[in-house]
């Protein structure tokens, strides 16, 4: 069986400057990969590239179409809508499963009818993670998913990831904390840092860069 996500010799750039290059990994069903590396090394850029939000400078990202669910630093929550409405919207967009289970998994059932603007930062983050559960997509690409979560919520999140993995999913995440997730392998990005002295990278690709 082909891996759910395979990345080979990937180079990504931010602001026209290469961040990391030569990154190669693949994720099968049930596997999780944790990206580590210092601030600014290019974890977010790499994840955005894998999610298809920006083009790779070099290398190949191979995943089935509509396989990836991406969760960024910002949760995409509308404060004027209730928790249920926020989550229901994404469930409809992704044509995913009902939202009851996702609310329960992230311990949001009691908050379901609250306007999202009233939630705390950690509760908002839980709502953002609950969105992953209603996408029904196999590959989760998560950018620092545990920011502003308390210990109990991190445990909930790990439980959700574990459930996702055992259901045949895969997860790629950037995080700085130790998740207590034995299934996961860790990839340190430090050796892949692009050499900033390389001259050819300083030359912008030109006008067509933006439209490539």
């Amino acid at each position: 069986m082909a891996p759910l996500l395979s990345v080979s010799d990937l180079a990504v750039a931010r602001g026209g400057r290469r961040a990391v290059e030569g990154v190669t990994f693949s994720l099968d069903a049930g596997q999780a990969l944790i990206l580590r590396g210092a601030n600014g090394i290019g974890k977010t850029t790499l994840l955005r590239t894998v999610a298809g939000l920006q083009a790779a400078v070099d290398g190949i990202v191979d995943a089935a179409p509509d396989a990836i669910a991406y969760a960024a630093h910002a949760d995409g929550i509308k404060g004027a809508l209730t928790v249920r409405e926020n989550l229901g919207f994404w469930a409809q967009v992704f044509d995913g499963p009902a939202i009851g289970a996702a609310l329960a998994a992230m311990n949001l059932s009691d908050l379901a009818d609250r306007p999202a603007a009233m939630l705390s930062a950690g509760q908002k983050r839980r709502l953002g993670l609950a969105r992953l559960l209603v996408t029904g997509r196999p590959v989760w690409v998560l950018d620092e998913p545990t920011v502003s979560l308390d210990t109990a919520s991190v445990a909930l999140f790990v439980q959700a990831v574990r459930g996702h993995l055992s259901g045949g999913g895969a997860a790629l995440m950037a995080t700085h904390i130790d998740l207590n997730l034995p299934e996961a392998t860790v990839l340190d990005l430090t050796p892949y840092r692009a050499d900033p002295r390389r001259v050819q990278d300083r030359v912008p690709a030109g006008f067509d860069e933006a439209f490539a």
């Binding site: 910002a74 995409g76 967009v93 992704f94």
Partner: peptide
């Protein structure tokens, strides 16, 4: 507004 709260990124990765 969708740009500020990150919804636009998420919509871009949605099946729409």
């Amino acid at each position: 507004l969708d740009w500020e709260d990150g919804s636009l990124d998420l919509l871009a990765t949605a099946p729409l």
